[in-house]
Lab assay of single mutants.
Amino acid sequence: GSMEQGFLPKGWEVRHAPNGRPFFIDHNTKTTTWEDPRLKIPA
């Protein structure tokens, strides 16, 4: 929902695949990933 959306880094969006699995869109680089960007520790 909109709650989890608010925690994503700037430029990211979460969508759900037809099977219900969430995936993440990085509008900054125009890419998608199954990995939650929030789980990655910034270098």
Score class of each variant (00 low, 15 high):
37 P>F: 00
29 T>P: 01
11 G>A: 00
32 T>R: 11
28 N>D: 06
2 S>C: 14
16 H>D: 06
25 I>P: 06
8 L>P: 03
9 P>Y: 02
37 P>A: 01
40 K>W: 09
34 W>D: 05
29 T>H: 05
42 P>D: 11
9 P>D: 05
32 T>N: 05
32 T>I: 15
8 L>W: 04
32 T>P: 04
1 G>Q: 12
20 G>Q: 03
21 R>D: 14
7 F>M: 14
29 T>Y: 02
33 T>N: 02
40 K>Y: 11
37 P>Y: 00
29 T>M: 05
10 K>T: 10
27 H>K: 05
41 I>T: 12
2 S>T: 13
25 I>T: 06
43 A>P: 13
28 N>R: 05
11 G>N: 07
6 G>R: 11
11 G>Y: 03
6 G>V: 10
22 P>K: 10
9 P>H: 03
27 H>S: 06
27 H>L: 09
35 E>D: 14
19 N>I: 00
7 F>G: 15
4 E>Q: 12
2 S>F: 12
25 I>K: 04
37 P>T: 01
23 F>P: 06
5 Q>V: 13
12 W>A: 03
23 F>R: 07
15 R>A: 09
10 K>S: 14
18 P>T: 08
5 Q>N: 14
37 P>G: 02
38 R>C: 05
15 R>W: 04
13 E>R: 00
7 F>T: 15
32 T>Y: 11
13 E>S: 03
5 Q>W: 08
38 R>K: 03
36 D>E: 02
43 A>C: 15
11 G>L: 00
43 A>G: 13
42 P>N: 12
20 G>D: 06
43 A>F: 10
25 I>A: 03
17 A>R: 04
1 G>P: 13
7 F>D: 15
27 H>N: 08
21 R>P: 08
10 K>F: 10
27 H>F: 07
6 G>P: 09
27 H>W: 14
6 G>S: 11
18 P>Q: 08
3 M>H: 11
20 G>K: 05
20 G>L: 02
12 W>M: 04
9 P>E: 06
2 S>I: 12
5 Q>C: 15
31 T>Q: 07
21 R>M: 09
15 R>V: 09
38 R>P: 02
4 E>D: 13
36 D>S: 00
2 S>Y: 12
20 G>H: 04
7 F>S: 15
13 E>M: 00
26 D>H: 05
38 R>D: 03
14 V>W: 00
34 W>Q: 04
4 E>W: 12
8 L>V: 02
36 D>Y: 00
31 T>A: 06
30 K>S: 10
22 P>T: 07
43 A>V: 12
33 T>E: 02
35 E>I: 13
2 S>E: 11
5 Q>D: 11
30 K>W: 05
18 P>H: 07
24 F>P: 07
28 N>K: 06
9 P>V: 03
35 E>Q: 13
4 E>L: 12
26 D>N: 10
36 D>P: 06
39 L>K: 10
40 K>I: 12
20 G>N: 04
27 H>V: 07
12 W>P: 03
10 K>M: 14
19 N>T: 05
14 V>L: 08
11 G>E: 04
40 K>P: 13
19 N>P: 02
37 P>M: 01
3 M>Y: 11
20 G>R: 01
32 T>S: 09
4 E>M: 14
9 P>C: 09
14 V>M: 15
31 T>H: 07
7 F>N: 14
40 K>A: 14
17 A>L: 12
24 F>L: 02
42 P>V: 14
31 T>N: 06
16 H>W: 15
15 R>M: 07
4 E>R: 10
19 N>V: 00
35 E>F: 14
33 T>L: 04
22 P>S: 07
41 I>F: 13
15 R>S: 07
24 F>S: 00
23 F>Q: 09
14 V>E: 10
5 Q>T: 14
7 F>R: 15
37 P>E: 01
20 G>C: 10
7 F>I: 14
9 P>A: 03
30 K>V: 04
6 G>D: 09
8 L>K: 02
42 P>E: 11
7 F>K: 14
25 I>W: 06
41 I>Y: 12
8 L>Q: 01
5 Q>M: 15
1 G>R: 11
3 M>G: 13
12 W>G: 03
21 R>F: 08
11 G>Q: 02
34 W>M: 06
35 E>M: 09
13 E>K: 00
34 W>P: 04
25 I>H: 06
41 I>K: 11
29 T>I: 02
18 P>A: 11
30 K>G: 15
33 T>W: 08
42 P>W: 06
23 F>N: 07
12 W>C: 04
38 R>N: 05
34 W>L: 06
8 L>A: 02
19 N>R: 01
39 L>M: 11
34 W>K: 03
14 V>P: 02
31 T>I: 08
33 T>P: 01
11 G>D: 04
16 H>V: 15
31 T>D: 05
40 K>M: 11
1 G>N: 12
35 E>L: 14
34 W>N: 04
12 W>H: 03
10 K>W: 07
30 K>T: 06
5 Q>E: 14
5 Q>S: 13
42 P>M: 10
24 F>C: 14
29 T>G: 07
26 D>G: 00
22 P>C: 15
11 G>M: 01
19 N>C: 14
25 I>F: 10
38 R>V: 04
25 I>V: 11
29 T>F: 03
35 E>W: 13
12 W>Q: 03
38 R>Y: 04
36 D>I: 00
25 I>G: 05
24 F>M: 00
11 G>F: 03
12 W>D: 04
43 A>S: 12
3 M>K: 14
42 P>Q: 12
34 W>Y: 08
10 K>Q: 13
3 M>C: 14
21 R>V: 10
4 E>C: 15
29 T>E: 05
4 E>I: 14
38 R>I: 03
7 F>A: 15
11 G>V: 00
28 N>F: 07
13 E>A: 01
32 T>M: 15
8 L>C: 09
39 L>Y: 09
18 P>N: 07
28 N>T: 07
35 E>C: 15
22 P>V: 13
28 N>V: 07
34 W>V: 03
42 P>A: 13
20 G>P: 00
41 I>N: 12
37 P>S: 01
39 L>F: 09
8 L>S: 01
17 A>S: 08
12 W>Y: 03
26 D>M: 01
26 D>Q: 01
7 F>W: 14
10 K>A: 15
2 S>H: 14
41 I>L: 14
40 K>Q: 12
25 I>D: 07
15 R>K: 11
18 P>L: 08
39 L>I: 13
40 K>G: 10
3 M>E: 09
14 V>G: 03
18 P>D: 07
23 F>K: 08
16 H>M: 15
43 A>L: 13
25 I>N: 04
15 R>T: 06
17 A>F: 05
30 K>N: 15
41 I>V: 13
34 W>S: 05
8 L>H: 02
23 F>H: 06
19 N>G: 08
12 W>R: 02
13 E>P: 02
42 P>H: 12
31 T>V: 07
23 F>Y: 15
37 P>W: 00
17 A>M: 13
9 P>S: 03
41 I>W: 11
31 T>G: 03
36 D>N: 00
35 E>T: 08
34 W>F: 08
41 I>H: 13
41 I>P: 12
23 F>C: 15
42 P>I: 13
18 P>G: 07
28 N>W: 06
13 E>Q: 03
11 G>T: 00
23 F>A: 07
32 T>E: 07
17 A>N: 06
3 M>D: 12
43 A>Q: 11
2 S>R: 13
13 E>H: 01
30 K>A: 10
13 E>T: 01
17 A>C: 15
15 R>Q: 08
29 T>D: 04
41 I>S: 12
10 K>Y: 09
13 E>G: 01
8 L>I: 03
11 G>K: 01
3 M>R: 12
42 P>F: 08
1 G>F: 10
35 E>Y: 14
39 L>V: 09
25 I>E: 06
14 V>H: 05
16 H>R: 11
16 H>I: 15
35 E>A: 07
4 E>Y: 09
30 K>D: 10
35 E>R: 09
25 I>Q: 04
40 K>T: 12
16 H>Y: 15
21 R>K: 11
14 V>R: 05
2 S>K: 12
43 A>Y: 10
8 L>Y: 03
24 F>H: 02
22 P>W: 07
12 W>I: 06
9 P>Q: 03
37 P>L: 02
16 H>N: 08
7 F>Q: 15
29 T>W: 02
21 R>I: 09
33 T>K: 02
20 G>F: 01
6 G>A: 10
29 T>C: 15
34 W>H: 05
26 D>V: 00
17 A>E: 06
10 K>L: 11
39 L>R: 07
1 G>E: 14
31 T>E: 06
21 R>H: 09
14 V>A: 05
40 K>V: 10
29 T>K: 06
26 D>T: 00
26 D>C: 09
18 P>V: 08
37 P>V: 02
19 N>M: 00
13 E>I: 02
11 G>H: 03
7 F>E: 15
25 I>S: 03
27 H>I: 08
10 K>H: 11
5 Q>F: 11
39 L>Q: 10
19 N>S: 10
30 K>Y: 05
21 R>L: 09
6 G>E: 09
41 I>G: 12
2 S>G: 14
39 L>G: 11
1 G>Y: 08
26 D>S: 01
